[in-house]
């Protein structure tokens, strides 16, 4: 196994062009931008996630959510919610995936739902809610999806949940 050295490359032009508009619009609320070929990750302040989403959908033309994920960072006492957004309608954007992320406090994990912007995120948000305990405010049906009905433990994908038998 060889560690390939990080080569300093200029970020790809097309991707950075797309992000520039977003950073211009949200200004300082964009906390982090990570651009790789075909993959863009934008981390914003949790209260501006809806604005960013609206911009990505309406101005950039990304029309569906491929996945909603939650990642637990117990060391920072934070949960990260990540929307991976892709496009069908615009054929030139089909190979791109935009990851829109926000970090929310672990004690009060609330974030607005994006189902009204992308209806395709409905079930993914429901799964993230039950698996990692992020509450999507305004979700039409924030109920248990995959777990048993009598589940009364903490959300299983939190890091302090240990698999039984391990």
């Amino acid at each position: 196994m060889s560690e390939t050295p990080e080569t300093e490359q200029k970020p790809p032009e097309r991707e950075s062009k797309l992000v520039d508009g977003l950073t211009a619009k949200l200004g300082k609320d964009v906390l982090e931008v990570d651009i790789k070929p075909k993959r863009i990750k934008v981390k914003v302040k949790p209260e501006r996630i809806k604005d960013a989403a609206e911009y990505i959908k309406n101005e950039l033309g990304f029309d569906h959510v491929a996945s909603v994920s939650g990642v637990d960072y117990p060391n920072d006492q934070e949960l990260e919610v990540i929307y991976h957004i892709a496009a069908y309608e615009r054929e030139d954007l089909r190979d791109l995936v935009v990851a829109l992320a926000a970090r929310i406090p672990r004690q009060d994990p609330k974030t607005p739902t994006l189902t009204d912007i992308w209806p395709s995120s409905e079930y993914s948000e429901r799964e993230t809610y039950e698996m990692i305990g992020i509450i999507f405010e305004g979700h039409p049906k924030l109920e248990r999806l995959l777990l048993p009905e009598d589940w009364d433990d903490i959300p299983p994908l939190r890091k302090e949940f240990k698999n039984p038998g391990r």
Partner: peptide, 15 residues
């Protein structure tokens, strides 16, 4: 892996 998120086509078609 620290976290793996697997989204399958059936899960997305369920909607």
């Amino acid at each position: 892996p620290y976290r793996v998120r697997l989204i399958t086509p059936s899960f997305r078609n369920m909607i």
